[in-house]
């Protein structure tokens, strides 16, 4: 598959879990003019490694170059491209919406149920909803919340694994 079209791609990188690594990675992206949409990072096993999930926009050539530049960084142990069709990708969002009256509240609860989201905090005039899913689902849900008045949103950025038995081998 080679195309010149700009698309969103998901890259997973296994990196050394130590200070400064996120800086090295993000600085390389900035310096080489690559456009990242999100980065999520967390430690994995063994604990001195971390996994970064990076989503980027660009054409084939750009993504290939990006993967090579990532792999070139000393602190990056392994890089792998995750193909959307066999990847499970998830994002989590916390959304604080206005819910001043019972009517708004019951409408919101309805949507929450349909989307299998959950309400994790309630106060007199607002509540916090937690929702997990692929990014499109989160976008759609946020759209539905807008008429109620969205006070704050926090999204984690995508994290992803490839389906099936295949996995990234760390030598």
């Amino acid at each position: 598959m080679t195309t010149n079209e700009e698309q969103t791609h998901i890259i997973a990188a296994i990196v050394e879990h130590k200070p400064g690594v996120l800086y090295r990675v993000s600085n390389m992206f900035r310096r080489r003019n690559f456009n990242i949409e999100s980065i999520s990072v967390g430690p994995i096993e063994p604990r001195d490694l971390a996994r970064m999930t990076i989503t980027v926009r660009g054409d084939e050539k750009v993504v290939e170059q990006m993967i090579k530049q990532l792999a070139k960084l000393i602190d990056v142990v392994k890089v792998s491209r995750l193909h959307p069709e066999n990847t499970v990708s998830r994002e989590l969002a916390l959304i604080k919406v206005y819910s001043p009256d019972t009517r708004a509240r019951s409408d919101i609860i309805n949507y929450v149920n349909i989307f299998r989201a959950s309400i994790v905090d309630v106060s007199t005039d607002s509540m916090i909803i937690e929702i997990t899913g692929d990014s499109d689902k989160l976008d759609a849900f946020i759209e539905l919340m807008k008429p109620f008045g969205v006070k704050e949103i926090a999204r984690t950025g995508i994290t992803a694994l490839s389906r099936g038995a295949k996995s990234i081998k760390i030598l």
């Binding site: 050539k61 290939e64 170059q65 090579k68 530049q69 792999a71 070139k72």
Partner: peptide, 8 residues
């Protein structure tokens, strides 16, 4: 020797 140079 630098694979990132190839196709850059």
């Amino acid at each position: 020797i630098d694979s990132a140079e190839i196709g850059k």
